[in-house]
Structures are given as structure tokens and as C-alpha cells.
């Protein structure tokens, strides 16, 4: 016969632990620092294990873990975050990059020249609520409803944050690609 403690360990190990990568990825983006992110990820997994009985079977376990991560970050780690946001999301010109490139690079092939680190740096420069929304969607592929649940805001807010975060990030990556000479800005 299998005891309750053993069953708890077995299910957590199989269902939750494989998401440590996602928890760590999100932790790095929230904390902005590798060592801090490791502590945050570890604390999240310990908390999740202690409250494993509260997890509702059949719901998205990754979303559940990321909710715990986010609470832990806000309560204990946010003050320690080093870099502040540097990307302005208030002035978004809708689909500006496409409008610039629709003739010279309509398939967006310049994106492939931008390396991982540069993308991550650009994500880190987004303001908190835009960064977390974009990471939950475009890195972790959560649905709008799941993101709303994790971040505690209505779906409409998720959608508008996601739109602005994606557009601000795209414009920054485009400006970077122009600066690096990967692509030419069309003359007006």
C-alpha cells in the first residue's frame, strides 16, 4: 500500500517538478538576477509542495506554480530587483515596424539575426506588468484566461498589456537591428 506522503511526493515529482524550467525562466525575468532567481524558484517549489493538496487536478499546473512564484516575488523579492524599466510603452505606434518594412522585409526575416540575449535584455527593459504578461504568454504560452488568473486582472487588461508589450518590444528590437546594421530603415 502506498502512504499519503509517498503519493504526495510521487505526484508532485511527476506533475509539478518538470515545470522547474518554466518557474526558473519566469523567476529570472521577474527578479532580473540569476542568484536571486534561483532562490525565488526554490522557494516557489517548496511552497508549492507544502500546498500541493490545494492544487486542483486537471487545471494547468504551470499556471498554478507561476501564480505562487509571482506572489512570492511580490512579497519578498521585488524590492531587491535591480534594473528599472527603460522601455516606454505609453507611446506605441500601432504596427509601426510592419509599416516600415512591408516592402523591404515583409516576412520579418531580420528577426532571425537577433540573438537570444538581446531579446531577453529587451524583455527585461519592459515595465513589470507588461513584462510578466508577455513572458506568461509568449515564453510560457499560457492562455489569456490563465494569465488573467495568474496576474489577478481582467482578460481585457491582459489583452491590452500584451498588445502594448509586444509592440514596444518589437519596436525596440527593430531599432536595435537598425543600429546593428542588420536592416535598413526605409527613407521617408
Amino acid at each position: 500500500m502506498v502512504g499519503a506522503a509517498e503519493e504526495r511526493r510521487r505526484t508532485f515529482e511527476h506533475e509539478a517538478l518538470p515545470h522547474l524550467d518554466a518557474v526558473f525562466r519566469m523567476a529570472v525575468r521577474l527578479a532580473g538576477d540569476q542568484a536571486l532567481a534561483e532562490d525565488l524558484a526554490q522557494e516557489t517549489m517548496l511552497k508549492a509542495y507544502r500546498s500541493w493538496h490545494q492544487y486542483r487536478r486537471g487545471t494547468n499546473v504551470r499556471a498554478w506554480l507561476l501564480t505562487i512564484l509571482r506572489h512570492t516575488f511580490i512579497n519578498a523579492y521585488r524590492k531587491a530587483r535591480k534594473a528599472g524599466p527603460t522601455v516606454d510603452v505609453s507611446e506605441i505606434e500601432q504596427f509601426r515596424v510592419f509599416h516600415d518594412l512591408q516592402d523591404s522585409d515583409p516576412e520579418g526575416s531580420f528577426f532571425s539575426q537577433i540573438v537570444d540575449d538581446e531579446v531577453l535584455r529587451a524583455i527585461d527593459a519592459l515595465p513589470d506588468e507588461f513584462r510578466e504578461t508577455l513572458v506568461l504568454s509568449d515564453v510560457e504560452q499560457l492562455s489569456y484566461a490563465e494569465i488573467a488568473q495568474v496576474t489577478g486582472v481582467p482578460i481585457g487588461t491582459v489583452k491590452s498589456r500584451l498588445f502594448r508589450a509586444r509592440q514596444a518590444l518589437q519596436q525596440r528590437l527593430y531599432d536595435y537591428a537598425v543600429e546593428m546594421g542588420y536592416i535598413k530603415r526605409p527613407s521617408p
Binding site: 524558484a41 524583455i123 515564453v139 509586444r166
Partner: peptide, 18 residues
């Protein structure tokens, strides 16, 4: 164009592991 952008974002960020 936007579809290519979203695929690119996912591909560039997902490889990162604990």
C-alpha cells in the same frame, strides 16, 4: 509578419533552462 514575430519570440526565449 506578426506571426513570424511571435514564433521568433518563443523560439528565442524558450531554450533557457534551470
Amino acid at each position: 509578419f506578426e506571426d513570424a514575430y511571435l514564433s521568433f519570440l518563443h523560439a528565442r526565449t524558450r531554450a533557457h533552462r534551470a
